[in-house]
Structure formats: C-alpha cells, structure tokens
Nucleic acid binder design. Structure first.
Lengths: 192, 192
DNA sequence: TGCAAACACCTAATAGCATTAGGCAACTGC
DNA sequence: GCAGTTGCCTAATGCTATTAGGTGTTTGCA
C-alpha cells in the first residue's frame, strides 16, 4: 500500500488549510486524518496530540504573518509603514481566517518567546521610530496599535460590519489616518 | 429522589460561572451536568444542544455588560464617559473572563440583532455625541473604539503584557487619554 | 546489491462527549 | 387526592482523542 507521506510539517500545513476552510476550532486530528485518507492514530507519530496540532498551526501563522510584515515594511517609514503593516495583517486575516484565528491562541510563555510573536512587537516598535515617541509612551502605543489592528480585524471578520454603511474598506482607511494622526500628536501625560 | 431544579436560565448561569472558572471553550453539556450532579441527557430538556448552551451564555454576557455600561454612562459625558465605558468592559473581562470570551462569539445575524449587541453600539455612539464628529466619521470612530477596547482587553487577558513594563493599568489609562485626544482632534478626510 | 534499522502507517482497545428515544417518578393544579 | 405535566433517568448510537503494539515500506550503509 502506498504511503501518504506524512510529516509534522505537512500535517501542520494541511491543518492550516483546513482551518481556513472550516474554521480553526473545527481542526482536529480526525479531520486532518480524513483529509490525508489515513487512520487517525497515524497522526500521532507526527504531532503529540490535538493541542500540539493547534499550536503548530498558530506558530506557522505567526511566522507567515511576520514574514509578510517584514517584507511590507522594507523601505517604508511613518504613515506608509503603518499602513503597510496594518494591511498585511488585515489581508492575511481575510485570505487565511483560520490561520489568523490560530495566531490569536494563547501560548504558554516559553512557546510564545520562541515564536514569531516578538518579531511582531519589534515591527510595530520599528514603525514608531518614524514618530516622535519616547518610552513609556512607545510601549503604550504598541499596545494600542496591536489592540486596534486586532480588534478591528476581528470585528470585520466576525461580520460586525456586514449590515451597515460605510464599507469596511473605507473605515479601515480612515482609521489608519486617525491612528497616524494620533501618533503624530500623542498627548503628554496629564494634558487636557 | 429530589430534583436539581434545572431551568434554561439556571443552566445558562451555571455555564457562565463554569466558563469563568475553566475557560469558555471548556463549557460543555457534560461539564454543566456534572456541576448539577445530573445526567448529561437531562440538560437537553432545557437547552437544545452544546451550541445553544454557548449562545445563551454569550447572550447573558452581552446583556450583563450592556447593563453595567448603561449604569456607568449615566450622567457622564466626554472623556468621563469614554473612561467609564472602557473600564466597564475591561473590569467585566477581568472579573468574568469566560463570559467575556463568550460575548465575542460570532452570532448569526438574527440572533445578533435580538441580542444586547445593538445596545453596545448605541452606547459608544452616545459617547461620541460628546465629541464633534459627524457621519461617516462617527461610524469609523465607533469601529475604532470597539476594536481598540476589545483588542487591548484581549491582549491583557491573554497575558501579552505579563512580562513587560509598564503595567497594564498604566497603559490602559494612557490609551484612554490618547483615544480621547484622538476623538477631540479627529483628522479630516485627506489631511496631512 | 542486499540487509538491517528506521519509520510510516495500520489494527485494536479504551474512554469521554453529544445527542436521541423512551420511561418513571416527582411535582402542580384542580 | 387524582391527572396531567414535566424533570430527570436509563439505554443506545456514533463520533473523537489517545495509547499500545504490529506490519510492511523505505533508506542508508556494507
């Protein structure tokens, strides 16, 4: 009987594709096994268990997004960079909703540190170099940007904007304008 | 044999408490049944299925948050109102992480319309009356605020800030300052 | 070229969860 | 105090996750 040619990597990639098609929470060992036409138990040589499978998909997604982000940021600064990174995340989420959801998984500290997560913070921090912010405001701004990007994308993906005007495209553009303006005129502590 | 006294409402409330203790995705009919010392099948008279149980918890959470938000907003305007609503969400999420996670569930359109969801948009819109925004910027601002609140809270709850300075309390305060400043000086379309 | 080790996949077994059908006993209203 | 309702039960089905141990295929090395 010919083999399916499973490896941890191919299992993870297939899981990621299934996540995009079916939703991240539908990705289970049995679904992946069916996809390969293989017995469920066969997966357990490549992936420790269901949780491990999901974590691997999350790590893959974080990596892919970081790679895209880095490419988009190359040679850009200021508002251009802000838009480039924001669009990277948003486009990725729309192309790969399951992977994007995976990337939001809570990872344990050690795994998170070894993941592409820190690259993401570094990219946002790099963007802020184009604005006139010093610590600790830089950290506050990173947290705001990360939250705003993720929050907006989550709402859009969740269909929150499906039945109202204006379209999400328009809002996104204006929100990036607004965030850029905010970063250029970040309020001082204790100011009116 | 004495009865446990189940009703759809008590099942939902117990599910919500279990969500806060164990995490929303751990809330299943079997866990709830064990909590009541009852056979799993007994739940099915009160709740249609596992999905229905989760949706009910989500609706409860949305309602509770809207109630708290409305109370917090009473008699406040402008930045005070912004802080009040933001704190409402954040405090709720920290007190009831499982319920908060439930509230982020994607609901189908009809259910969403009948939920307390619209009350939340209305509250944010009410806050914006304290600022000088007209449509469509008002809608953009609602989407930004909703996303920023949710995104920040998700990050904080997910432990993203656990190993860095400054503390989440500090960042939250400064981010509210920043959002207030942004709403007061919302950039016009096509402005530098 | 051929053998042995490594390995990809299998079968079998256990245990937990979701869901449905049908039954009995405990409450409720008259 | 009885009849009807209904809350909870047992039983049964089928799916999923996970582990253990077996078998045939592939690969590296002599």
């Amino acid at each position: 009987m010919p083999r399916a040619g499973l490896t941890a990597d191919r299992v993870t990639r297939a899981g990621a594709e299934l996540a995009d098609e079916l939703g991240f929470d539908q990705v289970t060992p049995s679904v992946v096994a069916r996809h390969f036409g293989v017995q469920v138990a066969s997966l357990y040589s490549h992936v420790r268990n269901a949780e491990d499978l999901r974590v691997r998909i999350a790590l893959l997604a974080l990596e892919e997004m970081a790679d895209r982000g880095a490419a988009a940021l190359a040679g850009r600064a200021g508002k251009d960079a802000l838009i480039a990174l924001g669009d990277t995340y948003r486009d990725y989420a729309r192309e790969h909703p399951g992977r994007y959801a995976a990337a939001q998984m809570r990872l344990d500290h050690e795994t998170a540190l070894a993941s592409a997560g820190p690259r993401h913070s570094a990219m946002i921090r790099a963007i802020l170099r184009g604005y006139d912010l010093t610590e600790p405001d830089q950290t506050h701004a990173i947290r705001l940007l990360g939250g705003a990007f993720h929050g907006y994308i989550t709402q859009e993906l969740g269909g929150s904007f499906d039945h109202s005007e204006p379209g999400p495209e328009k809002s996104w553009g204006r929100i990036l304008d607004a965030l850029d303006a905010l970063l250029r005129h970040w309020p001082h502590e204790g100011q009116p």
